[in-house]
Each structure stands twice: as structure tokens, then as C-alpha cells.
Design a protein around this nucleic acid. Structure first.
Lengths: 336, 336
DNA sequence: TTGAAAGCGCTAACAC
DNA sequence: GTGTTAGCGCTTTCAA
């Protein structure tokens, strides 16, 4: 059906090696170059990456396994990652495992069959069992956003300093005199959830505040979860005077809950949100936010992967990116 | 490095054909089955999909080209699509072209090199020029969400009845006596935008209402765009008494704008939103909505593609799914 | 610089 | 049911 290099060879009278060299940037006599290019056009030749993959033992495919595609943080990482990888002629196969370890393991296997050159994983399985096989087969594995303790030293990772991010936010609030600080976390037992909780507790401790269990809520990293969490917090007889919400969707939900309840920000309650400032645009222009550098996470991940792919020498590396506190006007000193 | 079928052959003393048949579901003598399975385990054999692809001339990869990954409607389609395709052992390579026709064309070429078995495209280029090559090469092409007129008869498609969706919503409002109905559309010149506008105009016409240009706004299918559009609508001296917003993100933005301006729904303004009911959860429980069957769109697309892949016979098919009007309490009769 | 030839790991006749 | 064998389209020695 489709033309092959053999066809080009026949058409031009040149040997296969010459044609191949032409495509791989080797030096080819000018008149042969012209000849080849004419034949390519005439026969509508399209290189066959599959055949090349078989021969070179490199598929130029990176497998990406994520817990959920319907999450703004994740999709923006994927976009910026894919951008760079594709520029380097790597394709990305994305597998959404719906936060299901079983599906995650299946995805790993699926990708291994396809001989992906590398694996990027925002892990659901906190034990890391699903990564045994790829690690054994020697392909580079890169964790993003979530570390897996048992894999320390065996894989590279790109994460943010979650502890710092959370304590920075909470310190901001304690600095303004707040002592009753609500925290809306993601799903229990996730790496990021735990780390952000640690940062929160550290900051409270630093300020000599004993944590109140009721003030700590889990919003599942969803808009609805954030909404619910804040609804619940507001129902407390002695409710928080300040609030820290730990992802974009939950921040949105939280703001909606506050509006629904007629709670003014920051007059009645101080709020620090999270992520994706640009999407808020004009909507909450003055929200104080912790911003994760999602574009950088994607970029770093892609580059680190490309690095692992080319330099066999390099050991594992953990890149920790820092967050930024963007000052808005959604926080104010506690009224005494 | 990795074990091959040849290794299995050597290990078991069986021929290659037997091993191959075992993996492809052929009948193999029981004792050989056991033998093979033992060897697989011992040698950590993993099938090489790349080699298989080269031989069978089927990559079992579907290329998916979309305008934007950061859009809830799109990601939910992709998730449900990928789900089914992967179950049938097809991998999905997603290319986000950022609504840029140039990138879209590059993506097509990229995927063609990789010998994808099929192409699913939510098109940015409204001329369809980017699909010439894949069409010529004979691989199945499936459009989703947006039709391309010049390709009618040449490609299959899965879309929703946008005209009906919009007129259904607007009829609901005119039926309640509203005559000043605001419309928040996506980006200008998109298929869905045009169709939904048509539906809106049809419904107005039906009700004997002359359209007011000021009431028709473009919100770019983003949250911020929806917010802005409603801000602008509210500034009109004679502002609408009802509102129809045509995607999820814009609905969110619109609701936020209304809240910010202290406009009560439905007391002051009737609203019909769009999409993704489940994400609203408890937040806007009573919003009247036009729901697109995104899961079905994904499912239909995947199945239609699988169909095209197996039955060479079938011609092009356009599947039009219908939307549903979910009654809430965000609309009420116009106060006379 | 160019060409001939071997082989990447698999499938599918075909003969047994 | 099983084994032998010839490629799929490409890259890459090696020799010319």
C-alpha cells in the first residue's frame, strides 16, 4: 500500500543505505538528495516509525499514567510535558487510571508491551508495587507530584515542596493574628495531602497554636468536595477565622460555599487558595494564592525524562520546585 | 536484553509458530501450554507490540487530536473513549494542538508517521485541509463535536444536535414568557457556536421575538469568558430577564458573575446552563441544564472507530446524539 | 559516499 | 498441532 524505502530505492536507483542516510541526516551527494526528494514526493512516501522502532529498539513513546484526567492541575502538566516531548519526536500515551491501583498496574503492563522508552507516573499505588516490572526492565521511571518512599533512590521525581507551601500559607495567616485556621485537604493518605498537612501543623506549632481536629477537612481535590468542606466548617459553632484550601477545584468550591453563605472575604473570613491563577482571571482577582509552577513541572519532567533517555550514566534525581505565595487581598489581620 | 519468542522457543523446545499461536489464542496442546507459561515466567517474557505492529501492519494505536486539554467536556470524552479503546487493546496518543491549525497539521503528520490505525479529531481547522493526507492514505477518520462541511461524505462523525439543544433551552424560556434572553456562546466561527446560535435564533423566531444583538455574547468557552460576558450583559440598561449559557466553564463563570452582582437566580434572572451536572454536586443543585451525553460521545466514538477498523465495508456515518434538558429551579415565569 | 546484506521480533502461509 | 520459513520496513555493519 504505502510506499517504502525500497520503493524509493527502486525509483531513484540508489541503495537502501543511501536513502536511509538521507533521512537520518547523513551526507548525501547533492544530486542524490534531489533525486530522493523527488521520489518522496512522487510516491507520497511517509517514514514508517514502527519499523524504525523495531530496528532501533526505541519506540520514541513515553507512557504517562495519571490518576485522573479531569483535573486542571494534571491536564496543564500533561500539556506542557507533551509539548516538549513531541518537539523531540516522542509520542505520549496517556493512561487515566481513575485513581484505581488495579487499572494503574494494567496500564503499566499495557505500556510495557508497547515498549515505551520511559514512564512518567503520578502514582495512585502508594506502595510502588506497580513499578517493579518497568524498573527491572531498566526503563527510566519518573514520578511526578507524589513521591513513593519505598522507591527512594530507584526513581527520579519532580515534585513541589508541599510542606513549605502549606507552612508558608499558614504562617501568613498566623502572622496576621489568626489562630483558628481551617484547612481543606485532598484525599486522605495521598502524598501531597500528608505533606501539606505536615506543613500546616508545623506552622501552627511554630506559632504556638494547638491544632483543632475539626478544622481539618478532606475535600477530595474536587470542587464539590471543597464546597462541602467549607459548608461543614461554617457549621461549627466556633468556626475558623481563616482558611487554607489546597487545590484549584476545591478553592473554587470553597469560594462558592462562602458566597452562598453570605460570608464576605476577607471581612468575615481570610482565605488563601491554590493553583491556576490564570483561570480565575477577573473572577477572584484578589485572591491570595499558593501557586504551583505547573508549567515548570511539566517542563522539568519532560526535560528530566529526555535526560534519562540519553544519559545512561545519570543516577536518580529528585527535582523539588518551589511554590509562590501570590499576595491578594483575601486575607486581613484578625479583628481582636 | 528482553526475552523474545525465540528464547521461549529455545527454552521449551517448541517451534515459533506454536508459541505465536499460543499468544494469539490458537489451540495448543495442554502440556505445551504449561511449558510455554513456565518459560514466560522464567524468562520474564513480555510480548513486543512493536514487532507485531510491523508484521501485521496494524499499530493498534489511535491518534486523537483535540484543540485543548484544559476543558472538562473534552477530557471527559477522552477518558471514556480511552477506556473502551484500551479494553480493545488500542493505545491512544493524544495531541493537544492549542486551537492552532498549524499545530494540528503537525500532529496529523506526526501520527501518520507512527502509523496510527485511525484518527479521531475535534477539529480546529474548519477547512479540513489537515485531513487530506490521512484520508488519502485510507485510514479511518472520525470527527467529534464539530463537523467540517467540506468533508461531508468522506468522514464519520459523532456530534450532538446543537440546534435542537439551543432551541430547546430557549423555547423553555420563551414558554415562560421571557422575551429578553441573553445568550453566551463560545468562540466565534466554531461549528458548535454557529449551530447553537442558529438554535437560539430559531426559537426566538418561533416565538415571534426579534433578536437583540447586544444579548448575544461570546465567552470563548472559558470560565473567565463566561464571567465577563455576564458582567457585560448586566451592564445593559435593558438587560435580559433570562440567560442561556452554552458550556460548563462559562456556566460556572456566569453563576459567579451573577452572585458577585447580587443577582438572585431565579428571582431576578432565569438561567439555563450547560454540561457536567455531576461536578456541580451540591453547589448549584437546582440549576436547569442542557446536558450533553459526554460519556456517550466518548463511547460512541470509540465504538464507531472500532467498527470502522474492522468492517472495511461500512461507509461514512454521522451519529447525532441528543441532549437533555434537566429541569431545575433556576428558571421561572417572567414577572409581568 | 554508496550498496549489499543481515537482522530487529513477530506472524502466517505452508508442509508435515 | 506443530515446525520451517519468508518477510513486515527499517538501520547498520562492512566492503567497495
Amino acid at each position: 500500500m504505502a510506499a517504502t524505502m525500497k520503493d524509493l530505492s527502486r525509483e531513484t536507483g540508489l541503495g537502501l543505505a543511501t536513502i536511509s542516510k538521507y533521512f537520518n541526516g547523513g551526507t548525501v551527494r547533492e544530486k542524490n538528495r534531489v533525486l530522493i526528494e523527488a521520489a518522496v514526493k512522487k510516491l507520497h512516501y511517509v517514514p514508517n516509525e514502527v519499523a524504525r522502532s523495531l530496528k532501533t529498539q526505541h519506540s520514541r513513546v513515553i507512557g504517562v499514567i495519571i490518576p485522573e484526567l479531569s483535573n486542571a492541575f494534571i491536564t496543564s502538566i500533561i500539556s506542557s510535558m507533551e509539548d516538549i516531548l513531541r518537539k523531540h519526536d516522542y509520542a505520549v500515551i496517556v493512561c487515566d487510571c481513575r485513581s484505581d491501583p488495579k487499572r494503574e498496574k494494567d496500564a503499566v503492563e499495557f505500556l510495557l508491551h508497547r515498549r515505551v522508552d520511559g514512564l512518567i507516573n503520578m502514582a495512585t499505588d502508594t506502595t510502588g508495587a506497580h513499578l517493579k516490572a518497568p524498573l527491572a526492565s531498566g526503563i527510566p521511571v519518573l514520578l511526578i507530584d507524589r513521591l513513593i518512599e519505598s522507591l527512594r533512590g530507584k526513581v527520579s521525581a519532580v515534585i513541589i515542596d508541599n510542606v513549605h507551601a502549606a507552612s508558608q500559607a499558614v504562617e501568613k495567616l498566623t502572622g496576621l493574628g489568626h489562630r483558628q485556621i481551617g484547612l481543606v485537604l485532598g484525599s486522605p493518605n495521598l502524598y501531597t495531602t500528608n505533606q501539606r498537612l505536615t506543613g500546616y501543623l508545623n506552622a501552627l506549632n511554630e506559632a504556638g497554636i494547638k491544632p483543632t481536629e475539626e478544622y481539618i477537612r478532606y475535600g477530595d481535590y474536587t470542587m464539590d468536595g471543597g464546597y462541602q468542606a467549607v459548608q461543614d466548617l461554617l457549621k461549627l459553632k466556633n468556626h475558623p477565622t481563616a482558611l487554607f484550601v489546597t487545590n484549584f477545584e476545591m478553592t473554587l468550591g470553597a469560594m462558592l460555599a462562602l458566597q452562598h453563605n453570605g460570608v464576605r472575604v476577607p471581612e468575615d473570613l481570610s482565605v488563601i487558595g491554590f493553583d491556576k491563577l490564570e483561570l480565575f482571571g477577573e473572577i477572584f482577582p484578589n485572591l491570595t494564592l499558593i501557586r504551583q509552577p505547573q508549567l515548570s513541572i511539566g517542563r522539568e519532567s519532560a526535560n528530566l525524562m529526555l535526560n534519562m533517555l540519553s544519559n545512561e550514566e545519570s543516577g536518580c534525581r529528585i527535582v523539588t520546585l518551589t511554590t509562590e505565595l501570590t499576595e491578594g487581598s483575601s486575607v486581613r489581620p484578625l479583628k481582636k
